[in-house]
Amino acid sequence: MTLTLQPIKVATGFDEDGMIVLDEKQRLVAVLVHLSDENEVAPGQWYLEAGFGRLDGINHPVFADLDAAQEWISQCLARGR
């Protein structure tokens, strides 16, 4: 699955940038946030701030980088087919 990422500012209350993640039909499937260095549990990692459809739920993992995040999202979406 080809995902499209677009940078976006996310109002988490911290100085954090994020990415909106769109699927091949340009539907919003997830919002990822690059956690600030102030975060004490996963500084600098990517956090699944919100997921939609197949990604909606209580599972909000953190990823070392965007590649890992995209792979996880792709797998979740593929499982739903």
Binding site: F14, L35, E38, N39, V41, H60
Partner: peptide
């Protein structure tokens, strides 16, 4: 913070934000 996350039903990342 991980234990608070398991008690509160939120992620550790969220616990940390809330505590901050």
């Amino acid at each position: 913070q991980g234990e608070f996350a398991d008690a509160l039903g939120i992620t550790t990342v969220h616990v940390n934000r809330v505590l901050q």
